[in-house]
Design a protein around this nucleic acid. Structure first.
Lengths: 117, 117
DNA sequence: GCTCCAGATTGATCGCCATCAATATACGTA
DNA sequence: TACGTATATTGATGGCGATCAATCTGGAGC
């Protein structure tokens, strides 16, 4: 988890032989890696990935009561997945009367998407 | 996990009122969601994300002995993370003499990257 | 053969996560 | 006020994952 940012790792080698070019280091910083990993972890469940997929298809927001019957899991579990996505900053929610509506936050996936491409 | 693919979920509603447009369904299929979630889960750890980042900076492959000292975790743990990445189809490995070299598989991240952008 | 070294595997521990049933909360309606 | 309905939260459980120390494997060199 914690990164050793010394760029020139000291390491004994068999004399006269090396395995590769010696200096190698991450281009991204630890904090950025932690942010992107948090987003990736939130997407690392098929249900959550499909929830995000559904929300991304809709310009506006989608009612939870539409989301629950799409999956063969209980309503509390869907609610839990939506909470994970919200805490990862991927979706937002809004309450209107009895119903709750979720939507994708526009820039949420940008950093990870840029790094991936 | 398992998706109910009925596209028109039946659900009782208060008479004369609806919460939103009624038909909503995932655009991606369950298998595709599971594949992409597997890749996302593999990227959902800061160490693995930085391992992939290092490997992506190098056209060729990188020796494990260069990767281990970049992190403040033990060699077996680095080996474990590399195994997770290999089993997710993100990296490949090759042995040359005493050393092991890892490299990013070129198309591994393409599906997730395309979906994200 | 034996020894040293790089890396992988094993076994154990600890904490987190996905899931559900049950309950709570909050809102609309009569 | 009381009741029903939509969603969130709680508590419990089973399983998975991150980590390490210890060990194993296999190649290089003597």
């Amino acid at each position: 988890m914690a990164i050793n940012l010394e760029l020139v790792p000291k390491q004994k080698r068999p004399a006269g032989e090396r395995c590769c070019e010696p200096v190698v280091y991450p281009d991204i910083e630890r904090r950025q890696a932690e942010r992107m990993a948090e987003v990736a972890r939130a997407l690392g469940d098929p249900v959550r990935l499909q929830l995000v997929d559904v929300l991304r298809q809709h310009a506006g927001s989608v009612c939870v009561c539409e989301l629950v019957p799409l999956f063969e899991i209980s309503q509390p579990t869907v609610s839990h997945h939506l909470k994970v996505l919200r805490e990862a900053g991927i979706v937002g929610s809004e309450r209107r009367g009895l119903w709750a509506y979720y939507y994708v936050l526009p820039d949420a996936l940008k950093e990870l998407s840029t790094w991936l491409s």
